[in-house]
Amino acid sequence: MDIQTVHPFVIFFAAITTNNILLTNFLGMCSFLAVSKDLKSSLGLGAAVIFVSTCTAPINWLVYHKLLVPYELEYLQYIAFIIVIAAFTQIIEMVIERVSTLLYLTLGIFLPLITVNCAILGCALFLVIRQYTFMQSIAYGMGAGTGWALAIAALAGIRSRMEKKSKVIPELEGAGIALVITGIIAMAFIGFSGIVRIN
């Protein structure tokens, strides 16, 4: 099957389920582990990731196909993508901070964390490797972000419930148990495989 004929909607769902960027590629782990202690901040970070990946995916698609490819500079993609993501998050942070304090407090303060989030860079690199079209890249960006947000929300929900109800052996407290839970969620997500292939 030619990937470019796949409907963007399918790519969106595949990016959430079968190709979840966090649970199948394990990208964006550091902020995933750090901010998943409570549901509220994990949702804020998740929303920020959805927003940034949705916006940067098409921008990076344009930079790659309209700037790097014509000049045969594909090898510069890492640097180009990183500066695009960094500049974009900076600008968005400034705008949000100015426009709404409430939005800034729930979403804006996480933006600097996302600048160095490898899930966002990974998302831009997958666009290239999988040769998505422009529309597909928007769908993939949105899907990858949503998948990441879903995973962190699931982990945060489980962790906050466990804090009240479960006893964890001291050696596994914190990041240790979070990694174990992530592994189990990832295994559960294998259940989706076979529905659709986008790579």
């Binding site: 000049y71 500079l73 180009a80 500049a87 900076q90 400034m94 901070e97 100015r98």
Partner: peptide
């Protein structure tokens, strides 16, 4: 030279955008 020029142009545009955003929003 092309690589340097393209990368500089990209950084230049982004810096310009940042400066404009900073002027209006920050």
């Amino acid at each position: 030279i092309t690589a340097v020029l393209v990368l500089s142009a990209l950084s230049g545009i982004l810096t310009l955008l940042l400066l404009i955003a900073e002027f209006f929003f920050a």
